[in-house]
């Protein structure tokens, strides 16, 4: 599945797609988007990269094991809930900053929670697909054949 055009296009598409996914994540509270969508877009971008340039380079680009993203994401989501608890309110009470930022709007724990969702979704998707692709290369058969 090595195609010159695909791999070249992917190199340029990847940063754009990743930026788009972060954009989706950050503006999700006010406009269509959010952690799920953003995470899926980022994962799709990395999967595309892996398909075009090989699993190893995709893993190198990511730098860490995708499973780590799951753990960090879950932790982030739980911490965002605990912050409410620590400030003496019920678990998962939203806390907000007073300043307003462009695109994002106000910073608050729900955004942090969404970041956790974003990371978990990326981690889950990549864990599954990378593991499947790894099996694929191990089975010494490169591509899918029609019967």
């Amino acid at each position: 599945m090595h195609s010159m055009i695909l791999s070249t296009a992917t190199r340029y598409l990847l940063p754009l797609l990743l930026m788009f996914s972060i954009f989706l994540l950050l503006r999700g509270h006010n406009e269509p988007g959010g952690g799920f969508t953003g995470g899926l877009v980022a994962a799709a971008a990395l999967v595309l990269y892996g398909l075009a340039l090989g699993l190893r380079s995709a893993r190198q680009l990511l730098g860490i094991d995708p499973r780590m993203l799951i753990y960090v994401g879950l932790l982030t989501a739980v911490v965002s809930g605990l912050l409410g608890l620590l400030s003496g309110q019920v678990f998962m009470t939203g806390l907000w900053s007073t300043q307003t930022l462009p695109v994002i709007g106000k910073l608050g724990t729900p955004l942090l929670f969404d970041v956790g969702v974003y990371l978990v979704v990326i981690g889950v998707t990549l864990t599954i697909i990378f593991a499947l692709m790894e099996n694929e290369t191990d089975s010494k058969t490169g591509s899918l054949k029609e019967e």
């Binding site: 509270h29 406009e31 709007g105 729900p110 929670f113």
Partner: peptide, 27 residues
Amino acid sequence: AKGRNIVNVILVDFRALDTLGEITVLA
């Protein structure tokens, strides 16, 4: 909840505990 996208607000604020459960299942 200081958010204008109601769907997202439901997911990350009003029903965030459900979402936490969901991402745990995914994990």
